[in-house]
Design a protein around this nucleic acid. Structure first.
Lengths: 194, 194
DNA sequence: GAAAATTTTGAACGATCGTTCAAATTGACA
DNA sequence: TGTCAATTTGAACGATCGTTCAAAATTTTC
């Protein structure tokens, strides 16, 4: 029963990821989940309720991934692999290059308060995950211990956003890899002082 | 007559910028332009035709701005000012922090071919402007002459995308300024070799 | 100033939007 | 197997979507 729900949310995730909140009609959702409108409303309250679950599941999954990066022996090397996996994928999965949260932020005004809250809280949570990775990388001496953790976490999250927007337009995978290298390079250099 | 058209496109720009292509209904547009549907269709063909003009005008304006940055005595200092102007603005203009092109890219699948083409060509054009700035900065010795122009242009455009997504969520202007400093710092450092 | 050409108007169209709900189906328990 | 609760169904609702077009208003032409 609970499994069926997770499965439905997963299918909805693909749809929202591809088409956005506004762009995904209830009839698209009905088709994707193979459920009739009444069932969807009985289970998820309404479109926004489903979207909220999608975002929460997306964030939870991202959090898990980022935590396993942080807990790796070499967090920075794992981070590089994580970037590559997220940004370089076959054509039918290209929609995944865009970050679902960032995509949602661009249409934040059109989403209700419930969905909005889920998106913004998700951003904050993932920011903490990035901070955690940086802390761990300092511990393993992959990063200098002078690295400003909180600021670098914001910066790293930014880089990820920019990279994803870049990757979605890019056909050349090696250009994406070079861009990832630049990010990791800049992460290790000096940071501007206040 | 032509002036009235530019004025209408400008008003439509604000609307599309705030609400996106899909999120801007024809009735919103009618109200924003103070025109009745028939007039709008007579002038702009349809919603997508208006959107195309909006994107083209947006790109043309951005191009002008970036070119004046490139033609400054100190392109890199001007670039810094450009970033600050684009990313730090009063609350009623906050919608401008998001890049209209990037916002459009997130809903590219929902826009027709005409609008899609305008957006993608706009990205390419602005990329060339970024490359031009880098070339000029090399000439003025603000950048090392080993800076890889084409790659750095992609990178700089990326940074701008990331910064804008960051700025739209940010309330603290000094955090944005610090992030801009980091970008300019990283622009001047070494680049990973192939 | 009359006639012709151009532009603007706004009611109305069919399609699609998110959502509802009475009826049918299914599942749980005695 | 019969009963009751829980779930699923799908036709249908009012609202809104992008768009059309005959009629009215305006501008241009001679």
């Amino acid at each position: 029963m609970k499994y069926a729900q997770e499965d439905a949310v997963e299918k909805a995730t693909i749809l929202f990821w591809k088409k956005g909140f506004q762009g995904s009609g209830m009839r698209d959702i009905q088709q994707a989940l193979d459920m009739r409108p009444g069932s969807i409303y009985a289970r998820f309250q309404n479109k926004e309720g489903l979207f909220k679950l999608v975002v929460e599941q997306y964030v939870a999954h991202s959090k898990d991934t980022l935590q396993s990066v942080a807990n790796s022996d070499t967090p920075l090397l794992s981070l590089r692999e994580f970037f590559k996996t997220a940004l370089i994928n076959p054509d039918e999965l290209r929609y995944m290059r865009q970050c679902l949260l960032v995509k949602s932020i661009t249409e934040l005004e059109l989403i209700g308060d419930v969905g909005k809250k889920a998106v913004l809280e998700g951003m904050v949570l993932l920011n903490k995950c990035f901070a955690n990775i940086i802390e761990k990388a300092i511990e393993t001496k992959e990063l200098q211990d002078t690295t400003p953790v909180v600021f670098a976490a914001d910066w790293l999250q930014n880089q990820f956003v920019g990279l994803r927007a870049f990757a979605i337009l890019q056909t050349d995978n090696s250009a994406i890899e070079k861009m990832i290298d630049k990010v990791l390079y800049d992460l290790k250099t000096q940071w501007p002082s206040d």
